Simulated assay, not measured.
Amino acid sequence: MNGRRTMLTGAEDFDAFYTATAKRLVAAVYATTGDLAEAEDAVQEAYVRAWQRWDRLVREGDPLPWVRTVAIRLAISTWRRTRNRVRAHFRHGPPSDVPGLSADRVALLDALGELSAEQRRAVVLHHLLDLPVEEVARETGVSNGAVRTRLHRARKVLGERLADPLATAGHVRGASHG
Protein backbone atom coordinates (compact mmCIF):
# COMPACT_ATOMS: atom_id res chain seq x y z
CA MET A 1 0.00 0.00 0.00
CA ASN A 2 2.86 2.38 0.74
CA GLY A 3 4.23 2.01 -2.82
CA ARG A 4 0.77 2.78 -4.17
CA ARG A 5 0.62 6.03 -2.16
CA THR A 6 4.00 7.07 -3.58
CA MET A 7 2.79 6.34 -7.11
CA LEU A 8 -0.35 8.42 -6.59
CA THR A 9 1.72 11.28 -5.20
CA GLY A 10 4.03 11.08 -8.24
CA ALA A 11 1.03 11.21 -10.58
CA GLU A 12 -0.43 14.14 -8.66
CA ASP A 13 2.92 15.93 -8.76
CA PHE A 14 3.20 15.32 -12.49
CA ASP A 15 -0.36 16.57 -13.08
CA ALA A 16 0.38 19.73 -11.11
CA PHE A 17 3.64 20.22 -13.02
CA TYR A 18 1.86 19.74 -16.35
CA THR A 19 -0.94 22.14 -15.42
CA ALA A 20 1.53 24.80 -14.29
CA THR A 21 3.90 24.58 -17.27
CA ALA A 22 2.24 23.21 -20.42
CA LYS A 23 0.52 26.32 -21.76
CA ARG A 24 3.64 28.48 -21.50
CA LEU A 25 5.78 25.73 -23.01
CA VAL A 26 3.45 25.45 -26.03
CA ALA A 27 3.76 29.21 -26.50
CA ALA A 28 7.56 29.01 -26.37
CA VAL A 29 7.79 26.13 -28.83
CA TYR A 30 5.28 27.87 -31.09
CA ALA A 31 7.39 31.02 -31.06
CA THR A 32 10.43 28.90 -31.88
CA THR A 33 8.86 27.07 -34.82
CA GLY A 34 5.98 29.23 -35.98
CA ASP A 35 3.65 26.22 -36.16
CA LEU A 36 1.07 25.87 -33.40
CA ALA A 37 0.03 22.31 -34.24
CA GLU A 38 3.64 21.13 -34.31
CA ALA A 39 4.32 22.97 -31.05
CA GLU A 40 1.37 21.29 -29.36
CA ASP A 41 2.42 17.86 -30.67
CA ALA A 42 6.04 18.31 -29.63
CA VAL A 43 5.10 19.51 -26.15
CA GLN A 44 2.67 16.63 -25.68
CA GLU A 45 5.34 14.12 -26.69
CA ALA A 46 7.88 15.77 -24.37
CA TYR A 47 5.49 15.41 -21.42
CA VAL A 48 4.86 11.76 -22.33
CA ARG A 49 8.60 11.17 -22.27
CA ALA A 50 8.91 13.09 -19.01
CA TRP A 51 6.22 10.93 -17.39
CA GLN A 52 8.17 7.82 -18.40
CA ARG A 53 11.19 9.19 -16.45
CA TRP A 54 9.34 11.25 -13.87
CA ASP A 55 10.98 9.80 -10.75
CA ARG A 56 14.49 10.31 -12.15
CA LEU A 57 13.74 13.83 -13.41
CA VAL A 58 12.37 14.88 -10.02
CA ARG A 59 15.36 13.37 -8.20
CA GLU A 60 17.72 15.34 -10.45
CA GLY A 61 15.97 18.64 -9.72
CA ASP A 62 13.68 20.81 -11.82
CA PRO A 63 12.24 18.74 -14.72
CA LEU A 64 11.15 21.78 -16.74
CA PRO A 65 14.46 22.43 -18.55
CA TRP A 66 14.56 18.76 -19.63
CA VAL A 67 10.96 18.87 -20.91
CA ARG A 68 11.56 22.18 -22.67
CA THR A 69 14.71 20.92 -24.37
CA VAL A 70 12.97 17.73 -25.56
CA ALA A 71 9.95 19.68 -26.84
CA ILE A 72 12.07 22.17 -28.76
CA ARG A 73 14.26 19.44 -30.25
CA LEU A 74 11.22 17.43 -31.31
CA ALA A 75 9.60 20.49 -32.88
CA ILE A 76 12.75 21.55 -34.71
CA SER A 77 13.31 18.02 -35.98
CA THR A 78 9.77 17.88 -37.34
CA TRP A 79 10.11 21.38 -38.73
CA ARG A 80 13.25 20.43 -40.63
CA ARG A 81 11.57 17.35 -42.10
CA THR A 82 8.55 19.30 -43.28
CA ARG A 83 10.26 22.53 -44.36
CA ASN A 84 10.14 21.71 -48.08
CA ARG A 85 6.49 20.68 -47.87
CA VAL A 86 5.62 23.95 -46.15
CA ARG A 87 7.57 25.99 -48.69
CA ALA A 88 5.64 24.32 -51.50
CA HIS A 89 2.40 25.05 -49.67
CA PHE A 90 3.23 28.74 -49.42
CA ARG A 91 4.26 28.91 -53.09
CA HIS A 92 0.81 27.69 -54.08
CA GLY A 93 -1.07 29.55 -51.34
CA PRO A 94 -3.11 28.38 -48.38
CA PRO A 95 -6.44 26.64 -48.81
CA SER A 96 -9.30 29.13 -49.06
CA ASP A 97 -10.99 27.90 -45.86
CA VAL A 98 -8.02 28.60 -43.55
CA PRO A 99 -8.54 31.74 -41.43
CA GLY A 100 -5.76 34.32 -41.66
CA LEU A 101 -3.45 35.47 -38.89
CA SER A 102 -3.26 39.07 -37.75
CA ALA A 103 -0.73 41.22 -39.58
CA ASP A 104 1.28 41.66 -36.36
CA ARG A 105 1.47 37.92 -35.73
CA VAL A 106 2.50 37.25 -39.34
CA ALA A 107 5.19 39.93 -39.11
CA LEU A 108 6.52 38.51 -35.83
CA LEU A 109 6.57 34.94 -37.14
CA ASP A 110 8.26 36.06 -40.36
CA ALA A 111 10.86 37.97 -38.37
CA LEU A 112 11.49 35.02 -36.03
CA GLY A 113 11.81 32.81 -39.10
CA GLU A 114 14.70 34.94 -40.33
CA LEU A 115 16.73 34.19 -37.21
CA SER A 116 19.02 31.21 -36.98
CA ALA A 117 17.66 28.33 -34.92
CA GLU A 118 20.15 29.20 -32.15
CA GLN A 119 19.11 32.87 -32.10
CA ARG A 120 15.41 31.98 -32.16
CA ARG A 121 15.82 29.57 -29.25
CA ALA A 122 17.76 32.16 -27.23
CA VAL A 123 15.06 34.79 -27.86
CA VAL A 124 12.27 32.42 -26.88
CA LEU A 125 13.98 31.18 -23.72
CA HIS A 126 15.14 34.60 -22.57
CA HIS A 127 12.36 36.96 -23.67
CA LEU A 128 9.28 34.76 -23.80
CA LEU A 129 10.08 32.46 -20.88
CA ASP A 130 11.99 35.07 -18.88
CA LEU A 131 14.97 32.80 -18.24
CA PRO A 132 18.18 34.55 -17.19
CA VAL A 133 21.11 34.44 -19.62
CA GLU A 134 22.92 31.97 -17.37
CA GLU A 135 20.05 29.46 -17.53
CA VAL A 136 19.70 29.88 -21.30
CA ALA A 137 23.42 29.16 -21.58
CA ARG A 138 23.11 26.01 -19.45
CA GLU A 139 20.11 24.78 -21.37
CA THR A 140 21.63 25.40 -24.79
CA GLY A 141 25.11 24.22 -23.88
CA VAL A 142 26.94 27.44 -24.76
CA SER A 143 28.65 30.22 -22.81
CA ASN A 144 26.89 33.24 -21.36
CA GLY A 145 28.74 35.37 -23.90
CA ALA A 146 27.46 33.26 -26.78
CA VAL A 147 23.89 33.68 -25.51
CA ARG A 148 24.36 37.46 -25.22
CA THR A 149 25.78 37.58 -28.76
CA ARG A 150 22.85 35.55 -30.12
CA LEU A 151 20.37 37.80 -28.32
CA HIS A 152 22.08 40.96 -29.58
CA ARG A 153 22.12 39.78 -33.19
CA ALA A 154 18.54 38.52 -32.95
CA ARG A 155 17.33 41.83 -31.52
CA LYS A 156 19.00 43.67 -34.38
CA VAL A 157 17.26 41.51 -37.01
CA LEU A 158 13.93 41.70 -35.19
CA GLY A 159 14.27 45.45 -34.75
CA GLU A 160 14.86 45.92 -38.46
CA ARG A 161 12.02 43.59 -39.46
CA LEU A 162 9.51 44.88 -36.93
CA ALA A 163 10.19 48.59 -37.43
CA ASP A 164 7.13 50.81 -37.24
CA PRO A 165 5.10 49.81 -40.34
CA LEU A 166 3.55 53.28 -40.62
CA ALA A 167 6.98 54.90 -40.82
CA THR A 168 8.03 52.34 -43.44
CA ALA A 169 4.79 52.78 -45.40
CA GLY A 170 5.15 56.56 -45.29
CA HIS A 171 8.71 56.33 -46.57
CA VAL A 172 7.67 54.06 -49.44
CA ARG A 173 4.63 56.23 -50.20
CA GLY A 174 6.74 59.37 -50.29
CA ALA A 175 9.34 57.73 -52.51
CA SER A 176 6.77 56.48 -55.02
CA HIS A 177 5.08 59.87 -55.34
CA GLY A 178 8.23 61.90 -55.32
Rank of each mutant, 00 (worst) to 15 (best):
Y47D: 00
Y47R: 03
V48S: 05
V48A: 07
V48N: 01
V48K: 08
V48P: 00
R49F: 02
R49Y: 03
R49D: 01
R49G: 01
R49T: 00
A50N: 01
A50M: 02
W51Q: 03
W51P: 01
Q52S: 11
Q52Y: 08
Q52C: 01
R53F: 02
R53W: 06
R53A: 10
W54Y: 03
W54V: 00
W54G: 01
W54S: 00
W54L: 02
D55T: 15
D55V: 14
D55Y: 04
R56I: 11
R56E: 14
R56P: 00
R56T: 15
L57A: 07
L57T: 04
V58I: 15
V58E: 06
V58R: 15
R59K: 14
R59S: 09
E60M: 02
E60D: 13
E60Y: 06
E60V: 04
E60I: 04
G61Q: 08
G61K: 05
P63S: 03
P63K: 03
L64V: 09
P65S: 05
P65Y: 02
P65E: 02
P65H: 06
P65Q: 03
P65L: 04
W66K: 06
W66V: 14
V67Q: 01
R68L: 09
R68K: 00
R68E: 07
R68T: 10
T69Q: 08
T69I: 09
V70E: 05
V70D: 00
V70K: 12
V70H: 06
V70I: 13
I72T: 13
I72R: 10
L74S: 01
L74Y: 08
L74E: 05
L74V: 01
L74H: 01
A75K: 08
I76K: 09
I76P: 01
I76Y: 04
S77H: 13
S77A: 10
S77P: 00
T78W: 08
W79G: 14
W79N: 11
W79T: 10
R80N: 12
R80D: 10
R81Q: 13
R81T: 07
R81G: 10
T82L: 08
T82I: 03
T82W: 08
T82E: 12
R83T: 12
R83M: 07
N84S: 14
R85N: 07
R85L: 14
R85D: 08
R85T: 11
R87E: 15
R87D: 15
R87K: 13
R87A: 14
R87S: 12
A88M: 14
A88K: 13
H89L: 15
H89M: 15
H89D: 04
F90I: 02
F90L: 15
R91M: 14
R91H: 13
G93C: 06
G93F: 07
G93M: 07
P94E: 13
P94F: 15
P95V: 04
P95T: 05
P95S: 10
P95H: 10
P95I: 02
S96E: 12
S96N: 04
S96W: 11
S96K: 11
S96T: 13
D97S: 11
D97L: 09
D97M: 08
V98M: 06
V98T: 04
V98E: 02
P99F: 09
P99A: 06
G100C: 07
G100M: 10
G100Q: 14
L101H: 13
